[in-house]
């Protein structure tokens, strides 16, 4: 992309970007993890329609950036929902059902074992899942024309280093 093209794109993007936001926008603490229906809430946003007249171009414009942000927010909120469900749900369950909290298997308190060692693997899996999803979303956004391949991020990162 030449400097002129980029300047032109920035110029066309600027009025959209500078307008004060009409709605509250994506609220990260909100319960809705999908993010899909927010395109309706934001009148400025044209949904999935690309504003770029030159679609195979590799550099994402503002609309594509917003789409990426929405996708990433959806992924992050889903991860957050998993974490919150476990961290909020388990204490409530054990506090409200004391009989369950006292359960023993083979003389060993079940929840003692779960809290000491059982939940950490869940966090490892969630973290790696989040990493994979976020990297994939990024690759899809930078190079929509190229089919996403699993090793490209590693290669790109090694090249930059």
């Amino acid at each position: 992309m030449t400097g002129d093209q980029r300047a032109a794109r920035t110029a066309t993007a600027a009025p959209r970007e500078r307008r004060p936001s009409g709605g509250p926008g994506p609220d990260p603490s909100g319960p809705d993890p999908s993010g899909a229906d927010r395109s309706g809430a934001d009148p400025d946003d044209s949904g999935g329609e690309p504003p770029d007249p030159d679609p195979p171009h590799p550099v994402p414009g503002p609309a594509e950036a917003r789409a990426l942000i929405r996708v990433q927010l959806g992924i992050a909120l889903r991860t957050g929902a998993v974490v919150l469900a476990a961290v909020a749900g388990l204490p409530a369950l054990l506090a409200l059902v004391p009989a369950l909290a006292r359960v023993r298997a083979d003389g060993v308190p079940v929840w003692w074992t779960v809290l000491a060692a059982g939940l950490q693997p869940l966090w490892v899996v969630t973290a790696l899942w989040q990493l994979k999803r976020a990297e994939r979303a990024e690759r899809a956004a930078i190079a929509p024309a190229v089919a996403p391949s699993r090793g490209s991020a590693e290669r790109g990162e090694a090249g930059r280093r």
Partner: peptide, 23 residues
């Protein structure tokens, strides 16, 4: 056992940090 929640939350916090903040 009430204190076993704290290390569990500490590790989970890094998952949230990863999801919302780092990159």
């Amino acid at each position: 056992a009430d204190m076993l929640w704290l290390p569990v939350a500490a590790t989970a916090a890094y998952v949230l940090l990863l999801a919302f903040v780092t990159a």
